[in-house]
Design a protein around this nucleic acid. Structure first.
Lengths: 206, 206
DNA sequence: GCGTAATCTAATCAACT
DNA sequence: AGTTGATTAGCGCATTACGC
DNA sequence: GCGTAATCTAATCAACC
DNA sequence: GGTTGATTAGCGCATTACGC
């Protein structure tokens, strides 16, 4: 069990992302994709994100939840193999490793500094804080979220009851400047079509 | 959790039916049928029984176990209906009611007398006792088993440690009367199950 | 030991009276 | 409508909380 | 209230250093 | 090889006991 998080968590800094509502058309596409591949590659998720006009991170979350709910009966009925027996090797089919997973994001030291500072202040930032950080350091918000997850997990940070409650520090830093990242070697190819990745910032190389 | 049944139940009267071993060919047919209809009609079960040369009761058991194991995701994935939406009424398709389920077996009073006597002696007969009863009263053994199940359930008979061996039964009447008291308010079965004031024809009509 | 057939209860369905 | 044979499941998913 | 998106931890994988 | 970003599950199945 996680933590007994505060029930009425309406503090601005801790407000969570508003629920995404998928249309039926979107759901049709998602479900269809899920039936074909419950574990889509990153490329597939990107394609889906484009197709249904949604952030890739939402696609990711949707697949996670879907897998968790009906947990796609383990490995497609092993007994069914009694009928047709063929375990042919098709190694090349598996070698779609490019696009398999999202390319690792690298953070600059200044970005890390900002993140760590924010983390020390509040290891459980809500959507607003994350978004602000994302803009501030020029990294997709979804990456911010992941970074905090990993950080918490590795620091064994336990959820506190009402981390701050009344005091807010958010709006007082008007120093978006300076954070300009060093012009890393871009995101390389122009194939970056996602609205999710920014031109500058941590070089999400691949 | 049922009851702590006696672990080494090797007494002849309580020996259970020996395990049926299906061949791969039989399994292929069964699995195929299961995928088409996890809830086959009685007619289908009979057809299968004929096809793979097995008692119909074994078919029944096999389907029960199969459903219990991978419990065929509830109602064929409701969300999938987003694709094709039509709940057309095809009442005639459902009206295959004949052969839907096994036709109800009627017992003569003498048959019932024999069954009740055996039941009072041992409410948990093994395969041998059941088979003997089957021959004795001229009813399939599977029906004997079902009869004992229903009888036990409706008398709330609890499994006792070593029903035979010490020979003779001790029905704790307290349990029975207590149940009947409850029966008054629930009104379900006020019938006296301990005596046979019954008389009717003997036929497994269909 | 594991896999799974056999077994069991409680509930419900449904045929016969 | 009651009695009783026939059939069936046996079960929920990490926690939380938002939006309908 | 329910459905389910969002969130969380712990573990593991895997890219980059 | 360590560090750390990315991805994933989060979990059974009524009980019993036989036969391989």
């Amino acid at each position: 069990m996680a933590q007994a998080v505060s029930p009425n968590n309406t503090t601005a800094a801790n407000r969570r992302r508003s629920r995404t509502k998928f249309t039926e058309d979107q759901l049709k596409i998602l479900i269809n994709a899920f039936n074909q591949k419950p574990y889509p590659s990153y490329a597939t998720k990107q394609r889906l994100a484009l197709e249904i006009n949604t952030e890739e991170s939402r696609i990711q979350i949707w697949f996670q939840n879907r897998r968790a709910r009906h947990r796609f009966q383990k490995r497609s009925e092993p007994e069914e193999h009694l009928e047709s027996s063929q375990d042919e090797d098709h190694p090349e089919e598996k070698i779609q490793s490019r696009g398999d997973r999202r390319c690792r994001t690298s953070y600059t030291s200044s970005q890390l500094h900002t993140l760590i500072e924010a983390f020390m202040n509040n290891p459980y930032p809500g959507i607003d804080s994350r978004q602000q950080l994302a803009i501030e350091i020029g990294v997709p918000e979804s990456r911010i979220q992941i970074w905090f997850q990993n950080r918490r997990s590795r620091c064994h940070v336990q959820r506190k009851r009402e981390p701050d409650e009344a005091l807010e520090q958010r709006q007082d830093q008007g120093k978006i400047s300076e954070v300009r990242v060093q012009g890393i070697e871009t995101t390389q190819n122009g194939t970056d079509l996602t609205s999710d990745s920014y031109s500058s910032g941590a070089r999400t190389r691949w």
